[in-house]
Simulated assay, not measured.
Amino acid sequence: MAKANPELIAALEKTITKLSNGAAYQWGHMGACNCGNLAQELTQLSKAEIHQFAMQRYGDWNEQILDYCPTSGYPMDMMISKMLNYGLTLDDLAHLERLSDPEILKSIPKEKRDQLNKNSREDVVLYMKVWASLLREKWLIQQGSEVNLSPEKKLKSAVLV
C-alpha cells in the first residue's frame, strides 16, 4: 500500500469531495475514471490533458501501468511518475482502477464489499474514503500518535461519512 503522508491523504480527500460534489466521472475515460480523478488532483492536469496523454499509447490505466517506464519520455509515464512521487505504487493505481486492494477491501463491510462496482462513482468514493482513513491511521502511528478509536468507530468514520 502507498506510503502514508499528508499530501497523498489530502489529495485523496479532495478527490473524494470533488466526486461527491458531482465532478466528471466516467470509468471509460482515462481522465475522468478512478485513477484519472486522483491524477487530476495530484498532477493538476485536466481530465482532457490526462486523456490526451493516455491516447498517445494504447490501453487503459492497467495496460499503461504495465508498460510504465520512468525514462520513456511519454507524457503518460511522466504523469504516473509524478503520482508515484506522492507515495503511491503501481499496484495502488491498478487496485484503484479495479477497487481491488485487499487491505482496503477488508475494511469495508462484507455485504458492501461484495457489491462494489469498479465503475460506480459511489463505490469509488467509498473505496477512497476507506483508503484515506487507513493511510491517516498509518501516518498517525508513524508520527508516534495513537489512534484512540475503536474499530467500529474507525469504520463508521471512514465508511458512513
Rank of each mutant, 00 (worst) to 15 (best):
M1C: 05
A2T: 06
A2Y: 04
A4R: 00
I9A: 02
E13H: 07
E13P: 07
E13A: 04
E13T: 04
T15S: 12
I16D: 07
T17S: 12
K18S: 13
S20C: 05
S20P: 06
G22R: 00
G22Q: 01
A23G: 02
Y25E: 01
G28Q: 12
H29A: 08
M30N: 11
A32W: 10
C33L: 08
C33R: 03
C35M: 10
L38P: 01
A39F: 11
E41L: 04
E41C: 05
L42V: 01
Q44Y: 07
L45Y: 11
S46L: 01
S46H: 04
K47S: 15
E49V: 11
I50R: 04
Q52V: 06
F53L: 03
A54P: 08
A54G: 14
M55W: 06
R57D: 11
R57P: 06
R57H: 11
G59N: 03
G59F: 05
W61M: 09
W61N: 07
N62T: 14
N62D: 13
E63N: 12
E63F: 10
Q64S: 12
I65H: 03
I65R: 01
D67I: 08
Y68C: 07
P70M: 06
P70R: 10
T71V: 13
S72W: 01
G73S: 08
Y74N: 11
P75R: 09
P75N: 08
P75K: 12
M76P: 02
M76A: 12
M76C: 09
D77K: 07
D77A: 07
M79G: 02
M79L: 11
I80D: 01
S81I: 09
K82T: 14
M83R: 07
M83I: 02
L84K: 08
N85F: 08
N85V: 05
N85E: 15
N85D: 15
G87N: 02
L88G: 03
L88E: 06
L88W: 05
T89L: 02
T89D: 04
L90S: 08
L90G: 13
L90T: 12
D92A: 08
L93H: 05
A94K: 15
H95E: 12
H95F: 15
H95P: 03
H95Y: 15
H95A: 14
E97P: 05
E97C: 10
R98I: 09
S100W: 09
P102G: 09
P102Q: 12
E103H: 11
E103M: 11
I104F: 05
L105N: 08
K106P: 01
S107W: 13
S107M: 13
I108S: 00
I108V: 05
I108N: 02
P109R: 13
K110W: 10
K110C: 10
E111W: 12
E111R: 11
R113F: 05
L116T: 09
N117K: 15
N117D: 13
K118A: 13
K118I: 07
N119K: 14
S120M: 01
S120I: 01
R121D: 03
R121E: 04
E122W: 09
E122R: 10
D123Y: 02
V124T: 15
Y127L: 01
Y127M: 03
M128V: 04
M128H: 07
K129D: 04
V130H: 02
V130A: 02
A132G: 08
A132C: 04
G144D: 00
E146V: 02
V147I: 06
E152H: 11
L155P: 03
A158Y: 00
V159G: 05
V161P: 00
